[in-house]
Design a protein around this nucleic acid. Structure first.
Lengths: 111, 111
DNA sequence: CCTATGTATAACCATTCGGTTACGCAAATT
DNA sequence: AATTTGCGTAACCGAATGGTTATACATAGG
């Protein structure tokens, strides 16, 4: 079973879960409150997210506290960033050009 | 049928095709030479990539010339970059919040 | 004109995905 | 002790995914 970050963020529900957890960690029921799908469905998505390391679950009594482990995005960011040079002039993935980059950002590359 | 960039890059074969096309545009047979799977399989993946705008195909006679349209990565990059503040001190994607960001990091939600 | 080339597409297949309902279990509450 | 709460998991389901082989078709070259 392929379980990598690229595949994990392919599903919009999982991206929404990440969004929620990045803002504030919470248990499974709190997460499920934000969706119309069933709690077991959320549980499955959380499982996928933990299997690829994007979410970390710590048990506190009977509650399973979920938090986002966003460092895992490095893998995706690195892959995407290597192509940024092809669609604008930024080279921010290399981390050496922060000053130059600030100026580049002024003429925002977003469509 | 959901057809977005997030889902398109979830498959490793499609990422590899993007890699090839970013380096140099080429027709379908040239792409297929790099894989063990059949040509129709590649054709299907190309179709998915074109449907979400990541690849652009122009016909030249009987050859279908494929090139990567990497601007489409903006969507993914923007989503990922909003979280960068949570895993390191750079805010290179937004560029406007360097000071605020330093404070936010203090009460980092990361475990 | 005939053949070879480059590609798309249809039909099919096994597997995975994303959801459901039903059930079980441990921890908290009463 | 009994009940409620929070959660996981099993069994199931329809649809999507990612591959295959066979076929068709337009274009290029002999």
């Amino acid at each position: 079973m392929r379980r990598d970050v690229f595949q994990a963020i392919a599903d919009p529900t999982r991206r929404e879960i990440i969004d929620l957890l990045a803002r504030n960690p919470q248990n499974l029921n709190s997460i499920a409150d934000n969706f119309t799908i069933s709690r077991p469905a959320i549980s499955k998505q959380i499982k996928i997210l933990t299997q690829c390391g994007l979410v970390i679950v710590t048990r506190q009594g009977r509650e399973h506290y979920c938090s986002a482990n966003l460092k895992k995005f490095n893998e995706v960011a690195a892959w995407i960033e290597q192509y940024r040079v092809f669609w604008n002039n930024k080279l921010d993935a290399l981390g050496d050009f922060l000053e130059k980059e600030a100026e580049v950002d002024k003429r925002s590359p977003m469509k």
